[in-house]
Lab assay of single mutants.
Amino acid sequence: SRSVIRSIIKSSKLNIDHKDYLLDLLNDVKGSKDLKEFHKMLTAILA
Rank of each mutant, 00 (worst) to 15 (best):
D17Y: 09
M41H: 05
K30A: 06
E37C: 06
A47T: 10
S32D: 13
K36R: 12
S3F: 09
K36T: 08
L22N: 00
H18T: 13
E37V: 12
L22G: 00
S3Q: 13
K19H: 02
V4R: 14
D34H: 11
K19I: 08
M41R: 09
A44I: 11
D28N: 14
L23N: 04
R6E: 13
H18R: 08
H18W: 12
G31V: 05
I45R: 01
N27H: 07
I5M: 09
K40I: 11
L42P: 05
K13N: 14
K33V: 08
M41I: 07
D17K: 15
S3T: 09
K10E: 11
L35Q: 02
V4F: 13
L14V: 03
S32E: 13
S12I: 04
K13T: 15
S3L: 13
N27Q: 10
H39M: 15
A44Y: 11
Y21W: 09
L46A: 02
D24T: 14
I16K: 12
S12H: 02
K13C: 06
V4I: 10
K36Q: 10
K40M: 10
T43M: 15
D28R: 15
L23I: 06
L46N: 01
K10F: 07
L26I: 03
L23P: 00
D28G: 13
L35C: 03
D17G: 05
L46G: 02
L26V: 03
N27Y: 06
R2G: 04
K40N: 08
D34L: 14
Y21K: 08
S3G: 10
I45Q: 03
K10V: 12
V4N: 08
K10H: 08
S1R: 12
L42N: 00
L35R: 03
S11P: 01
K36D: 10
K33I: 07
I8W: 06
I16M: 13
L35N: 01
D34W: 11
L14C: 03
R6T: 08
D34I: 05
I8K: 07
Y21F: 09
K36Y: 13
N27K: 14
S11N: 14
I9L: 03
V4S: 09
N15M: 09
I16G: 11
T43F: 14
A44V: 10
R6G: 04
F38S: 00
L26K: 01
K19Q: 08
I16C: 06
L42A: 02
L23F: 05
I5P: 01
